[in-house]
Design a protein around this nucleic acid. Structure first.
Lengths: 344, 344
DNA sequence: ATAAAAAATGGTAGCGCTAACATTTTGTCA
DNA sequence: TGACAAAATGTTAGCGCTACCATTTTTTAT
């Protein structure tokens, strides 16, 4: 005799056990669980009772193999620590909670190559859907995605030619608006600091440049960047660098709020008055911006909503309900606060 | 004839395709991939070539069904936005990257009930391992875990009677040490603020109490807590509350760094000098603490290491290498900074 | 050279579930 | 009440992979 039972000694309850106990066929159990309308009320109740008593939980692997589909939605973000993405993730998990959908999180660490590997791995698992960040995939990743047979949502940005669905906002416009705010607040020598120049950061920088040029206040010498990842400490360093290169700079638009907070700390250490001597504006509007001393102006983005909506659009599409529009622009909102209130 | 092929029109490359092309049996292909030593060098090369050419990727669902095992390691954290956990996650993903192990992240949102559901769901997927936070699971969760046939790592805390492996530190001792630091810095009326009283927060509060009592400076009236989640803004509110209830408070130990930063902002808004009028100490030592004005004292914890080590221990155990000790205490380090430097 | 041992490879069955079709039961209406 | 449609349930086969054992090939020892 064979002994194929080596690993299943752990008496896992299978659909066959439930079927036997309930006196029906396995197929009926399967239907009762995944398509209850197709099973009579009486049978359904009987099956539910047995399922509860035995503690039956369907094996997702077997189900995946049989159907060629999974309940897995892959989410690929560039960073799990960055506040921006963790807010998005929170939104996603919030909506996923209690639903049938399983979130599988991948961390590309801002590397298109790692992203490519993740996409490949995820796709091999027949995901129901994929959520990924931005518009700038590698050629191979794009190819994989275009021929993937699952729904895809791009988040964080809006742009033309989505793979499928898209939700985000315009980084160019957001930082252009912040720049105009600085100009209208009376600053004439604005600088820009940025770390980790991922594509979205670059577009924010481009937005600054565009708006600053238009206002006639653009000076390349007031731009300081570094490939290092953003931290508050780095904000201190970058603004120090900026001020040593261009001491007459009268405002700093920061690529994100961590840098802005660091910039504030550093300016204060140097005895510069914010906003009188120098204005500071961040990007994303993290909660802490509003309670700093002085409160820091920023560009609010809707990260939690983005996560929620991304998953909602995706799961609805999977359920056969196409979204009204495939591209959703959540916009942004400039939040003027005292850190840029030069004229009162 | 049947038409069972409806969904597999997508010409997925299977192990049979590879076997045919390589002129060997499927079994040999399987072995070549998962146990290369068992296949001759020549055959292996031939198979590898075909695998590359066809772009074959094994179907994890089929593999899971056949072996009863998966490569999935479930990670359950109470929050994906909290800096503390996102650092741990980053450590985990760092180690997982490039390995065969798939991380499946669950977010219990500080709810033992949601944790229980997650554990149940995860276990139904036959994970290779589980990483979860803390010592305080529900009875049912404990039962599930004790009878689970996968390796388990508890993170964030150390305590007796682990399910399996454990890595963390003592929150009681950490905050007791911070309290002693305050006392030795000359503060005699220390208060404590905390939000979201999860079990670890409670133990930190207990540590404060223990050390404050020992030093003869404990006063219950100087403790302010709230169930709301920690934010910088909440730090402002809590310290405001503390100061209205006990205006002569001369130091605040904060349950975490967000609160500490908020406390600093609020004290400064009120014209209190830090550290002369009031000392402020945080917990976790986020990067920004060192660059605030003044720099904020905190208790450093080793979150990234905790994530890395947790996954390392787990995967080594899965590979048959038992860790030296099942419980690893990573300790903590009090970081005295100017925010508590009352005597110079 | 030959037997015995070791290494490499293959054949078969089955993991747990569900698509597709087949059959039985129930409900409806003339 | 019988004929027919609709609903409920059952049967069969197979998803892609790997455990187990069987067989073949290679290596080693005598």
């Amino acid at each position: 005799m064979f002994n194929l039972l080596s690993w299943k000694d752990n008496l896992r309850v299978t659909i066959a056990d439930v079927a036997r106990e309930a006196g029906v066929s396995a197929m009926t159990v399967s239907r009762a669980l995944r398509d209850p309308d197709k099973v009579s009320e009486k049978t359904r109740a009987k099956i539910r009772a047995v399922v509860d008593r035995l503690g039956y939980v369907p094996d997702p692997a077997a189900s995946a193999l049989a159907t060629g589909k999974t309940n897995v939605i892959g989410v690929i973000v560039p960073s799990v620590t960055n506040n921006v993405f963790s807010d998005v993730m929170r939104g996603i998990y919030e909506v996923a909670e209690g639903s049938i959908w399983q979130i599988q999180l991948g961390n590309s660490r801002y590397s298109p190559l790692e992203e490519e590997n993740l996409v490949r791995t995820f796709l091999s698992q027949r995901p129901a859907g994929l959520i990924l960040s931005g518009l700038d995939q590698s050629n191979e990743t794009s190819r994989l995605l275009r021929s993937a047979d699952c729904r895809i949502v791009q988040i964080m940005e809006c742009g033309p030619d989505p793979y499928d669905l898209m939700i985000g906002f315009s980084h160019v416009e957001g930082s252009a608006a912040a720049t105009r705010h600085l100009v209208s607040a009376g600053y004439r020598k604005p600088g820009y600091i940025a770390a980790r120049l991922d594509p979205r950061s670059q577009r924010r920088l481009a937005g600054f440049r565009k708006a600053a040029e238009k206002a006639g206040v653009f000076e390349p010498g007031r731009i300081v960047t570094t490939p290092r990842p953003s931290t508050v400490t780095l904000g201190c360093e970058l603004v120090a660098d900026l001020l040593s290169k261009a001491p007459d700079t009268d405002a700093v638009l920061c690529n994100n709020d961590d840098l802005a907070l660091g910039a504030l700390f550093e300016c204060q250490r140097r005895g510069l008055r914010v906003p009188e001597d120098i204005g500071i504006c961040g990007f994303n509007d993290l909660e802490m911006m509003a309670v700093a001393n002085p409160p820091i102006s920023s560009v609010r983005t809707f990260r939690l909503d983005m996560g929620r909506e991304a998953l909602r659009m995706l799961t609805e599409a999977l359920a056969g309900v196409e979204p009204d529009r495939p591209i959703v622009d959540l916009g942004y909102e400039v939040m003027p606060r005292r850190s840029t209130a030069r004229n009162g």
